[in-house]
Design a protein around this nucleic acid. Structure first.
Length: 432
RNA sequence: GGAGAGGUGGCCGAGCGGUUGAAGGCACCGGUCUUGAAAACCGGCAGGGCGAAAGUCCUCGUGGGUUCAAAUCCCACCCUCUCCGCCA
């Protein structure tokens, strides 16, 4: 959520952000709502002040007639305040709804345009030149008996899967491998709940309800399955105040992720690429505003480190404005080369890292206290909102796709990159 | 799921229906003292809205209610803890 006080001051930027993200939102109407809510709030304050004064005067001894008059006036003031409170409540609710429709500011360097208008920041590794016809991960996994979509469909439905044999171990190995890559950087490893309350999900900027929702709801309970540990990790510190020396706080969340993939049919989504459930190690950072850009680069660096070690070619893209979503100020994705994707191979998203600045922190009420360095007085400093960032360390289903397709051998076996061998316990899967 | 206890400021913890936005302690900040640090002592210090400021308003889990007046009384809900049951 944006700071309503910045609406007028930075109106043009917000309008530009809406346009660039293809958000239809009325910024000027929101400004008007903010003004109206403020005016009503100020009027209510004045009424409250009068009421407080009246109440104080009621503490003295009064003769019966005066007491009766006083009580009557007290009732009148009470009713007046109640009416104004209702008006304020409505106005503020309206403002909040409008505010929720506004996206974050846009990083000046984020490419403007649609999904396909991303900028390629760099490419690492070379797509492998095969001396045989490479298969896609589904063919490879079927031949090696690593997945079972058919039986999963009968158990849970389409787009669920059983991972079998080395694939099951690979899932666990990748998680621990990814954790070991980032823990030395100061991340606290955390296994989070896989469910969360709708209000937490909303506070992080996701929509738990509605036709288009990517979020599963639990029938009979006020709970949803999380789409990412970003939700639980962000919610973990909702309504808290850090001291400056606690920042940056870096969390490495391990969770399952669930997505309805509503409206995703027909897109390139064979096999494990787009599924309803996968597990993920997610990095989440709370930091000072002045540090968030550097932290964003740091998350990107760690993502690259992980896929470098997995010997998977990838490119880094700077996501274009219309593909950014509401909370992200800027977003970088890693796209791995997937030889089995499309006709002759294609890039496929494997990680994503976003700087959400204070957009999530505002609704979550995550703040920090500066330790008053240099300031003369030291007192009277306001607490500030932190910035939040998130980034994928490893997202399992897609990491497995990339591993199988990139490291397949002529005989149908899969070479395991050296860095992963200690975790998986073998340097090769198959042939069978 | 059943029974009981409880949710107060960054943390711990007091709080007769009005004098309590809140005692006390810890932490933190400033100062005195000290070669320096510690200790001791003095002072400051909840969060948020509106406002240039003075100031003013709101907030004692959440939402209702009683009252001229609620952190204090009543109701509902949420959460935590203890015991019992069930269970990987």
């Amino acid at each position: 959520m944006l700071d309503p006080r910045l609406l007028e001051e930075r109106r043009d930027e917000i309008v530009e952000s809406c346009r660039a993200r293809r958000f239809s939102a009325d910024v000027d109407a929101t400004i008007a709502l903010h003004r109206r809510a403020n005016a009503l709030r100020t009027a209510l304050n004045e009424s409250n002040r009068l009421r407080n004064e009246h109440q104080k005067s009621g503490k003295q001894k009064l003769d019966p007639a005066a007491r009766e008059a006083h009580t009557a006036e007290g009732r009148r003031l009470k009713d007046e305040v109640a009416a104004q409170e209702e008006a304020v409540r409505l106005a503020e609710a309206e403002l909040e709804t409008a505010l929720r429709g506004l996206p974050n500011f846009l990083h000046p360097e984020s490419p403007r345009g649609d999904e396909s208008d991303f900028a390629v920041l760099e490419t690492a590794g070379q797509p492998r030149a095969f001396d045989f016809e490479p298969k896609d991960h589904l063919a490879l996994a079927s031949a090696l008996d690593l997945v079972d979509f058919e039986r999963a469909a009968s158990v849970a439905g389409q787009k669920f899967y059983f991972l079998k044999r080395e694939a099951a171990l690979l899932e666990l190995a990748l998680q621990r491998f990814a954790l070991d890559q980032i823990l030395p950087e100061g991340f606290v490893p955390i296994v989070t709940p896989d469910l969360a309350r709708p209000d937490v999900i909303e506070a992080l900027g996701f929509s738990p309800r509605g036709e288009e929702s990517q979020i599963y709801s639990i029938a009979g309970h006020d709970l949803c399955l999380i789409g990412t540990a970003e939700i639980t990790l962000g919610g973990m510190y909702a309504d808290s105040i850090f001291s400056e020396d606690e920042l940056p706080l870096k969390l490495a969340g391990v969770s399952h992720c669930f997505r309805t993939e509503a409206g995703a049919h027909g897109r390139e989504s064979r096999g494990l690429y787009r599924v309803h459930q996968f597990s993920k190690v997610e990095m989440f950072v709370f930091c000072r505003p002045e540090d968030s850009e550097a932290q964003h680069r740091e998350l990107l660096r760690l993502e690259k480190k992980i896929f470098d070690a997995l010997e998977i070619p990838y490119r880094v893209i700077d996501i274009a404005s219309a593909d950014l979503g509401a909370p992200a100020y800027r977003k970088f994705d890693l796209e791995a080369w997937m030889p089995g994707r499309g006709a002759g191979g294609d890039w496929g998203e494997i990680t994503s890292t976003s700087n959400c600045t204070d957009f999530q922190a505002r609704r979550l009420k995550v703040r920090f206290r500066r330790t008053a360095e240099g300031e003369s007085a030291g007192a009277g400093k306001k607490n500030e909102l932190v910035h939040t960032l998130n980034g994928t360390a490893i997202s399992n289903a897609r990491a497995i796709v990339a591993l199988l397709e990139n490291h397949q051998q002529r005989d149908g076996s899969i070479r395991i990159p050296a860095a992963l061998v200690p975790y998986l316990g073998t340097d090769r899967i198959g042939p069978r």
